[in-house]
Every structure is written in structure tokens, then in C-alpha cells.
Design a protein around this nucleic acid. Structure first.
Lengths: 352, 352
DNA sequence: CTTCTCCATGGAAACGATTCCATCATGGTT
DNA sequence: AACCATGATGGAATCGTTTCCATGGAGAAG
């Protein structure tokens, strides 16, 4: 438990001033002799600059914050791994928070990060645009990942918040109430859902349901677009985030609409619930009901039948977001849309 | 992007000195009048003390570090959620690192945390005892979770490092080379494995294999103890951590020893590999081979047949570890052993 | 009335780095 | 030889907080 050497100790040992030590260590100009002596002294004393002093002086903490809804969800685990990989190679620390999908906890965690002067943040947002205004106004560089905050707008469609992403499909962009100017790294949900729906249609399915969770408004919207008018709103149901609630939603869906023949699950937790509920109700997959699930998690292959999924690159998503948030400041970050891929396994069959 | 109010601003607005503000806000003594004015001014200015200044002054960063091998592994996701839940309720930040099971990366991350002056750390260790000496010597409060570092001792048995835990089963404790005095929160692997082996024996199985990954030396040891002499060392195989390597290990095991009739997988990634490899080789579970897997992950139930598992409370483990690391300093932390539970589903049957 | 104690109070030091700025040496140019 | 430009150098200021310490005032005890 010996105390660490400070820059002052190094300066003394090298016979130079602290300013010179700082310059040598952070790449400023110094004479060859001084540089050599400083380096030797630093090595000798096993000196490591304290992030504390530096942070205070620059009034900012290095590294980045990361806010996800739930680490138990394999997809967010993948995303976090991507962020951590990028951060590690940059030598930057990552402060992690799990929001449980609760806007209130999210707001608390943002407050905590502000207190720590963490000024870069990657978030899978749970709260609406309002929640994010304090962070933006405090000067944080925010990058959204996986999804955008739902707009707390009057029309109540749960439209996404970033204008330029809405225009992707030639759709009339939502009237921008006051879009957050926050770059995002997301999967191409529109294409992913469209491909899945077309695939199911090709198998003869007419009544296709969408089973979503919190934050899946964008995917639900993409689903509406993909099935086209008239949309049967009863076939679009939402759980609240917990596995129980997802199960209840799935079970309720099967029972209230026995005429449905296919389900698109908006996330792997929902997919899990859809399988479980089907089994409980003696619905066979894919004979009685076909299933496509968002997220290609390792266990999708273990199911029987193995699940057909819409794969999105969780790890890449995290990595790219981390790159963006680290580069920001240098260059104005631009949003990124990552491709999805329909991986056909065994959970979809022709309409019964 | 307005700059935040500092304690000086509050002092000025309240007409008191900075010392008084600090005392009021951190629970020191102050007159009612002063307290009231300070509180009012702080609220008025939306003052939040900067963690930067405080950290520098106390020469330590609040919160804690958390090091896990891989967030993609659901079990570590659960553990992390537990840590985060505890940290959140204490208002403390968590700095996360993912080691990939690599001692070198682990050492790097420890260095990074030291640089940040994070002096409390919860870790699922990958490196051996040597790796941890620098952290301990720097005065970090370390709590191990899920496992203990393998002892880099001469006897090469991969014995665990904490003496008092080794004595649980009345076994001659390994000659303590120089045990780390680090408290740990672990599952009762010995009992868990013993129960699983007895269960399999009860079903008539004679040749039971153990499939482990990095860090599962303790479980392998418990397995040796449970099966009793003579131990068929060929039936104990290890993967190196990646899913591919786990798969290769499982596949190799099945092929080299077609006489085995049951497998105990030391973790959920290994279990996944065991299922996949069995399917590939046309071994039916549980008809041809019975399987017990460590970790009760949500998808264990989705498999067909649903997997019989040794459940260990990942979330609790994380929560308890976080409690311990936060309380340390107040009280010398004591190790905790959490119970495991054999959950019988459908992946074990009578010996063919 | 004096003296002693106790508490509230605010100024200032400390924490460990970065960075501004004044100083000094060096070498080249006129 | 005088002058200037350039670059290295170290002292000191700075960041925002906590905490030490000296001061002063009020109340109690003599």
C-alpha cells in the first residue's frame, strides 16, 4: 500500500521542472537530454500519471458512459462488448449503467454521469426526447445506439426522433416537433422487418402479428409499413420489458387471435416469450405458427426448431458507436445505419 | 452548454464561505440559518458538486470497477446486473471492463483502473494469483466473484487460492503457496457438482465427462472429488473460452470417448457447445447422452429437451459482491458461498 | 464581571495534473 | 560585436472540492 509517485517526484528525480515532465510525457517539445532523463526517472519510479489531476484540470473525465436497458439481454451484451473493445483499444474507461428500460432510472444515471463529468455517452435510450435535453444542454456528446428515443410528440405515433433517418423509406417524415440533433448507430429496421414480412408472405401467411417490447416502436412502425394498409392493430402488441410481461403479451396474443399464423418478435426476449407461450398453448412451431425473431443470439440455433432470425450486428453497433463518440469533437458525427440479415432456419413454414 | 455552478458560486449566493457550503452539503454541522440559505442557493443555482474536485482531494475515485470475462455470456450479464443494481442504489458509478478471459488484458485493465484511482474492484479473475498482486499492493479493495484465481503454484493442480474455501469438503487443503487474502463471493461448486454427479449416477451413468472452460479448474477439481478415485482424466476436457473452441472440445470428447454416457458442462457456453456438437454427431439428448449444464440461463428451458441445470444465483452474486466491496473499509469483508440448485428438466435420462 | 468552553465560521492549504508566461541560452544574421 | 529569433525551461496559476486551523462570539460557570 505504498503511495504512488507524482509528477513532482519524477521532476525531482530527473532534475527538471514539473512542466518539462508533463511536456515529455504528453508529447510536447523537449530537448533530447531532458526527455531521456524524464523517461528514465518515470520508469525508475514506476510513475503513472493520475487521471484525477488531469481530469480536474481539463474539467472533463476521459472515457465514456454506456447506458443499456438490460445486460441480461444477450443483444445488449453483444453491444456492450463492442463498445468495450473499442474503448479498450483506446485505453479509455467505460462507465456502465443499466436502466432497466425505465426512463426515471435513465434520468438518474444521466445525472450521475454528469456529476462525474463524463462528457461522452453511448445510450440505448429508454426515455423520450425530453429526457435527453438535460444531457445535451450540459454539453455531453451523445450517441444513440440500437434505437432512437420515441418522440414525445402530440401525434402519438411514437415516431423516431432523428429526421434524416425517417426519410429512408420515402415515407413522409414525421412533423419534426423538435428533433434531437443526436447521431445514432442503428440497424436498418425497416429493411429487416420488410424482408421478414415478405418472406412470411411468400410462405402464404396473411395474418402476421408483431410482438414488441419497450423501445420497439420504430420496429412496430416499420412493421405497419411493411404489411401495408389496412393494418390490423390488434395484431400489434407490446410487453413492458420484463420476461413475465413479454410472456403474458405473447400468450394473450395467441389466445385473442387464434387466426394468426405468424409472429414477428421485435427482440430476443420477446422471441423467447413467443416460443414459451406457444409451447404452453400446444401450438407447434412452425406447423401452427411461424416465428421470426429479431436478434441472432447464440441460442437461436439451439431451439427446436432452430429459430429463423433477423440478425443485426450488435458488436459492430457498439464498436461503431464508440468510434463515433471518441471521434466527435474532431468531426461532427454522422448517423450510421447497419444492415440486417434474414437468417432462415426452421421456425417458419407454410401457412397451415 | 452553460457552465455548471461551482461551490464558490453557491457560497457567494448564500453569503457564506465555501467551507460552510461544503459542510452543509456533506452533513457537517452548521447553524440553521446558514444551512437554509445554502440549501436555497444550491437549489436556485441547480448546483451539483463535481466529483472531479472531490476525487482529487480525497485521492480516490468513488464507485467501483467490474471485470468480467465476457458480457456475451448470459451468466456474466446476470452478475453485472446484480453489481449495477447495488451500485445504483448507492449512487455509485461502475467502471466496466471485459477481459475476454485473457490475463494480459486483465492486467491492462487493472492498470487502467489504477490510473483512474478506482480503489474498489469486483472481478471474475482470469489471470493467476500473480496477476493480482499489483492491484492488492496498490491498496485496492478487491472482491472476487464466481471463481478464484488459479494458483500459479508448483504442483500445477490449478488449486484455488483462498484457503478457507478449500477446506469446505474436508479435503486436504492445497499447500498454500502464498494465498491471496481476498474475499470472494462464489457458488458452492463442490455441492453443485456433487449433486449433479450423484443424480447422474442414480440414473445409472458410469462414464461421466466434464467439459470446462477457462476458470473452471475449481469445478473440475470438484468433479474429480465427486466421481472419486480412480479418475479417468481423459473424460475431463477444456475449451479455451471461445465458442468455437468449446465446440471443438465437446466434439472431440464425444468422438474420442464414444463410451461416455453423460456430460457435465462447467458453464453455459460449454453447455451450448455440448448440445450443438451432440446434434452434429447425431447423438440424441438424453437418449444417447445425458447433459447437465452449469448456469440456469433463460434459454435452457427453450432447448429441446429443456436442459437440466445447476443453477447458481448470478444476480445475487453480483449484488453481494458489490455490497461487500462498498462495506469494506468499515468492516473486514468475509467470503460468501452461495447455494446452488439442481433444476431437473429433460436433458438427462437413464444410461442407454 | 471575568474566564472558560464550545461551536459556527471563513480563509487558505492541499490534492496532481496541465498550461500560460516570463526567462534564459543558443545560434545565426547583419 | 550587437541584435534578434527560436526553442527549451521552470515557476506559478488553475481546476473544484474537502479539511485544517485560527478567529470570534455567545453562553455557562465561577
Amino acid at each position: 500500500m505504498e503511495k504512488r509517485a507524482t509528477i513532482k517526484d519524477v521532476a525531482e528525480a530527473a532534475g527538471v521542472g514539473v512542466a518539462t515532465v508533463s511536456r515529455v510525457l504528453s508529447g510536447g517539445s523537449a530537448s533530447a537530454g531532458a526527455r531521456e532523463r524524464v523517461l528514465a526517472a518515470a520508469a525508475q519510479l514506476d510513475y503513472r500519471p493520475s487521471a484525477l489531476g488531469r481530469n480536474l484540470r481539463q474539467r472533463r473525465t476521459g472515457g465514456m458512459g454506456l447506458l443499456v436497458p438490460d445486460l441480461t439481454d444477450t443483444f445488449y451484451g453483444q453491444l456492450a462488448e463492442g463498445v468495450l473493445a473499442c474503448a479498450r483499444s483506446a485505453g479509455e474507461p467505460v462507465v456502465l449503467g443499466s436502466t432497466g428500460g425505465d426512463p426515471e432510472q435513465e434520468a438518474d444515471l444521466i445525472g450521475m454521469l454528469l456529476e462525474q463529468s463524463v462528457d461522452r455517452l453511448i445510450a440505448v435510450p429508454s426515455g423520450d426526447a425530453e429526457t435527453w435535453i438535460p444531457a445535451i444542454r450540459a454539453g455531453m456528446t451523445v450517441i444513440f445506439a440500437d434505437r432512437l428515443p420515441s418522440q414525445a410528440s402530440a401525434d402519438g405515433t411514437g415516431q423516431s426522433a432523428v429526421g434524416d433517418l425517417m426519410a429512408l423509406d420515402g415515407l413522409p417524415p414525421a412533423p419534426p416537433a423538435r428533433p434531437l440533433d443526436v447521431p445514432a448507430v442503428v440497424a436498418d429496421d425497416r429493411a429487416g422487418i420488410r424482408t421478414a414480412v415478405r418472406y412470411l408472405r411468400g410462405l402464404g401467411h396473411k395474418r402476421i402479428a408483431f410482438l414488441g417490447g419497450p423501445g420497439h416502436e420504430g420496429r412496430a412502425h416499420a412493421f405497419r409499413v411493411a404489411v401495408g394498409a389496412p393494418v390490423d392493430e390488434e395484431l400489434i402488441v407490446f410487453g413492458t420489458g420484463s420476461r413475465d410481461s413479454a410472456y403474458a403479451a405473447a400468450s394473450g396474443l395467441y389466445q385473442s387471435r387464434p387466426d394468426l399464423s405468424a409472429v414477428v418478435a421485435g427482440g430476443n426476449v420477446l422471441g423467447e416469450a413467443a416460443v414459451l407461450a406457444a409451447r404452453e398453448l400446444d401450438l407447434r412451431v412452425p406447423k401452427d405458427v411461424s416465428l421470426v425473431m429479431y436478434d441472432d443470439v447464440p441460442w437461436a440455433e439451439l431451439c427446436s426448431p432452430p429459430l429463423t432470425v433477423i440478425a443485426q450486428p450488435g458488436r459492430d453497433m457498439g464498436y461503431r458507436a464508440a468510434e463515433l463518440v471518441l471521434r466527435a469533437g474532431t468531426r461532427r458525427a454522422r448517423s450510421v445505419v447497419l444492415p440486417t440479415e434474414l437468417i432462415i432456419r426452421g421456425s417458419c413454414g407454410p401457412r397451415r
